[in-house]
Design a protein around this nucleic acid. Sequence first.
DNA 1: TGTGTGATAGTCT
DNA 2: GACTATCACACAT
Length: 178
Amino acid sequence: MAKDLLGKVLVRRLGATSLEGLIVETEAYRGYDDAASHAYRGPTLRNQVMFGEPGHAYVYFTYGMHYCLNFTTEPAGQAGAVLLRAVQPVKGIVEMKKRRGTERVKDLSNGPAKLTQAFAVTKALNGHDLTLGERLYVTEPFHPEPFSISAGTRIGIKAGGEKPWRFFISDNPFVSKR
DNA sequence: TGTGTGATAGTCT
DNA sequence: GACTATCACACAT
């Protein structure tokens, strides 16, 4: 799923305006066998969405000030999710600049917490059904372009750092730097 | 382009 | 009470 999401378009609808970004970087997280996963130690109030139906948004708050956006991937009862680490802004760039407080397009969404800020994703969307096609969902790109996928180790985690479950579009300038 | 560090609050032990 | 799936800024190179 993490690889399949690369090259797809993240869509955020806010009333009349819509924000769109090409997904360029993701990370895969599993459950009981993945020490880096929130679900590793079993269900809690915070991670319960990871154990629910697939195709839903798992949004969590971290580092005291940041939100991160994940998509659940496994059947109910099994934990698994894909973290969206970076997107390439496609539509609504003026709106994103306003939300991010910067004019630099490269800094709008090249990081997991940056893209949630640019796309106005907060805890209010935790558990949101992506298959409804409302407020937050994924579509095919209007002008698909060929790309190749690179893999590496996941970023910012302690345990489970050896698994190469971070995927990104090769040579895309909007992939996060760290 | 890279390194160091402070900000800040929810979650789990 | 420790830890965290991060970011922005200052400063060095």
